[in-house]
């Protein structure tokens, strides 16, 4: 069965007909030529396909395209303007936060989600006192432990984790100053 859907991808409105079996990831990569999100495992286990879906980080390999008609999608390539780097892009360069780079667009989108969630006061599994809701104006401090926990859905087979944590920490620190 085919269905017509419209997606706004990195600011561009795109209408296409998809088989109901097509995932959001395959619609982006195979149908729209948006290859920034990567297919790693295809089972929601590696995070390489992470994008911002209506502003929130989400895996796209287990999302059916037809179920997200009308969605606004931001990939790592669309986080900043054309030919510009987002602070997270620059931090990954500065801190050498990758080796082969395959997981990097997913890492970057996930990190953007982490920063946003922290700004909204969302706790994580390692946040010491989650019952303290008075601190919503200020983000929970994103120390290395918080970053590791919040980024745990993004695997890096090159093992660039220490530098990824450093890159995310640098941007988080810049924001909280």
């Amino acid at each position: 069965m085919e269905a017509e859907i419209t997606l706004t991808v990195d600011g561009a409105r795109r209408t296409l007909a998809v088989d109901t079996r097509v995932t959001l990831l395959d619609a982006l990569r195979e149908r729209l030529g948006v290859t920034s999100p990567k297919k790693g495992c295809g089972h929601g286990q590696c995070g390489a396909c992470t994008v911002l879906l209506d502003g929130r980080r989400a895996t796209t390999c287990l999302a059916l395209a037809v179920a997200h008609d009308g969605a606004r999608i931001t990939t790592s390539a669309g986080l900043a303007g054309t030919d510009e780097l987002h602070p997270l892009h620059q931090a990954f360069l500065d801190h050498d936060g990758f080796q082969c780079g395959y997981c990097t667009p997913g890492q970057i989108c996930s990190a953007a989600g982490v920063l946003d969630e922290a700004e909204r006061g969302w706790p994580s599994a390692v946040t010491a006192n989650i019952t303290d809701i008075t601190d919503t104006a200020g983000a929970p401090a994103l120390d290395a432990g918080e970053i590791r926990e919040r980024m745990s859905g993004n695997l890096c087979r090159c093992g660039a984790y220490p530098n990824i944590v450093a890159a995310v920490a640098a941007v988080a620190e810049g924001r909280s100053r």
């Binding site: 929601g44 995070g47 992470t50 879906l53 929130r56 980080r57 989400a58 895996t59 287990l62 999302a63 996930s110 989600g113 982490v114 969630e117 706790p123 994580s124 599994a125 946040t127 989650i130 919040r150 980024m151 745990s152 859905g153 993004n154």
Partner: peptide
């Protein structure tokens, strides 16, 4: 705490 212990940030959003 139970919810935050499950899956990952990008899966919990779905």
């Amino acid at each position: 705490q139970a919810l935050l212990a499950g899956a990952s940030g990008q899966l919990r959003n779905l």
